[in-house]
Amino acid sequence: MFRSWFGEPERIDSGTLRQAFSAISDYRALLAGLIEKQTPQCETYTRYELWSRGLGNALDELEESVYCAGRFGALVTHRQEERMDGEELANYRRHVYFAKNGFIRLFSILDKLGYLMNDLLRLRTERVKRKFSYFTVLRQMQHLHADPALAGPLLDIKERYREPLSRLRHKRNMDIHLVNAEMLDDLLHIDACRTDRTYIEDLDASMDDLRLGLAMACETIATFFAYAHKKKRV
């Protein structure tokens, strides 16, 4: 959608992103066939279909945000805002906007997936914690020894991406609950307590984490929906 801004053709899905979209599509096709039969469970199937479609749309928007954050970040060469000209500062602000949208959307997607998993797999995580996250759902799966063929791979994915996700979660929490990400950068990089110099974070390292977060979301979604389709979990 946004690649036209940079004179590029539309994205061609590949790798784990393509796998995730394909797994969602297969599961939605399964649901569509069940919905056509107009059984008493039709309303539930329709709800899962809408849920799955929404996750696909959200994943597409996450990828677009990560892409834009990287493109605008690549146009920033200075580490201090005061040394940027108007165009570079505007590109930095655009980078911040899309990066922030990216890490907030990442955890939103995971939590939406967690609610779908909880409902579909009958985990009843809400009995443990009324407002739960995707990671709470994983712990509930472990506690109940539920669907080990799914829980095992999902836990492996979580562990492989633990460090970048921890940093991204910290940013998300700071942005939502305390101060926004740009202010956090200012606090961490303040120059000998001088407020006339505003350093920015390492954009390359930040983008590495964001791209790894996208990869984690893709692998997680692909794994869950492939399992749900194979086992015909509806």
Results as ranks from 00 to 15, higher is better:
Val76Asp: 13
Arg53Tyr: 09
Thr39Pro: 01
Gln41Trp: 00
Gly70Glu: 08
Ser52Phe: 03
Ala69Met: 07
Ser52Asp: 04
Leu59Phe: 04
Lys37Ala: 01
Phe72Asp: 06
His78Tyr: 11
Cys68Ser: 12
Phe72Arg: 03
Leu55Asn: 04
Ser65Arg: 06
Leu75Trp: 09
Phe72Cys: 10
Cys68Thr: 12
Glu49Arg: 15
Glu63Cys: 09
Gln38Ala: 13
Glu49Met: 14
Asn57Phe: 15
Gly70Cys: 05
Val66Phe: 01
Gln41Cys: 02
Glu43Trp: 09
Gly73Asn: 04
Arg53Trp: 08
Ala74Val: 03
Ala74Ile: 07
Glu64Arg: 13
Gly56Arg: 05
Ala32Ser: 11
Ala32Pro: 00
Asp60Leu: 07
Val76Met: 06
Thr77Ile: 12
Thr46Ser: 14
Gly70Ala: 06
Ile35Met: 01
Gln41Asp: 11
Gly33Cys: 00
Gln38Ile: 10
Phe72Asn: 06
Gly70Lys: 02
Gly73Val: 00
Trp51Ser: 13
Gly33Thr: 01
Trp51Ala: 14
Glu63Val: 11
Thr44His: 10
Gly73Ala: 07
Phe72Thr: 06
Thr39Gln: 05
Gly54Phe: 01
Pro40Phe: 02
Gly70Gln: 02
Leu50Arg: 13
Glu63Ile: 04
Glu36Gly: 01
Leu50Cys: 11
Arg53Asn: 05
Leu59Glu: 04
Thr44Arg: 12
Leu59Thr: 03
Ser65Trp: 03
Ser65Phe: 07
Ser52His: 02
Arg47Glu: 01
Leu34Thr: 03
Leu55Thr: 03
Glu63Asp: 14
Arg71Ile: 08
Leu59Val: 08
Leu50Glu: 11
Arg47Gln: 09
Asn57Leu: 15
Ala74Pro: 01
Val66Tyr: 01
Asp60Ile: 08
Gly70Val: 04
Leu59Lys: 02
Ala69Glu: 10
Gly33Arg: 01
Gly73Gln: 02
Val66Thr: 04
Tyr48Trp: 14
Asp60Met: 10
Gln38Leu: 09
Leu62Cys: 06
Gln38Lys: 12
Gly73Thr: 03
Leu50Met: 11
Leu55Ile: 08
Leu59Ile: 03
Thr46Ile: 12
His78Ser: 15
Val66Ile: 08
Glu49Cys: 10
Gly33Asp: 06
Glu43Asn: 11
Pro40Asp: 10
Thr77Ala: 14
Leu50Thr: 11
Glu36Val: 01
Thr39His: 00
Tyr48Leu: 13
Trp51Val: 10
Thr46Phe: 03
Ala32Lys: 07
Leu75His: 12
Ala74Asp: 14
Cys42Glu: 15
Gly33Gln: 08
Arg71Pro: 06
Gly54Val: 01
Ile35Ser: 02
Ala58Arg: 14
Leu75Gln: 15
Ala58Ile: 05
Tyr45Ser: 09
Glu36Leu: 07
Gly56Glu: 05
Ser52Met: 06
Thr39Gly: 07
Ser52Gln: 04
Arg47Ala: 10
Cys42Arg: 13
Glu61Tyr: 12
Lys37Arg: 05
His78Gln: 15
Thr46Met: 10
Gln38Pro: 07
Ala69Phe: 09
Pro40Ile: 00
Ala58Ser: 12
Asn57Gly: 15
Ser65Asn: 11
Gln41Met: 10
Lys37Tyr: 00
Tyr45Ala: 12
Leu59Asp: 06
Arg53Cys: 05
Leu59Cys: 04
Tyr45Leu: 05
Thr77Asp: 13
Leu55Glu: 03
Ala69Cys: 09
Arg53Val: 09
Tyr48Val: 11
Trp51Pro: 08
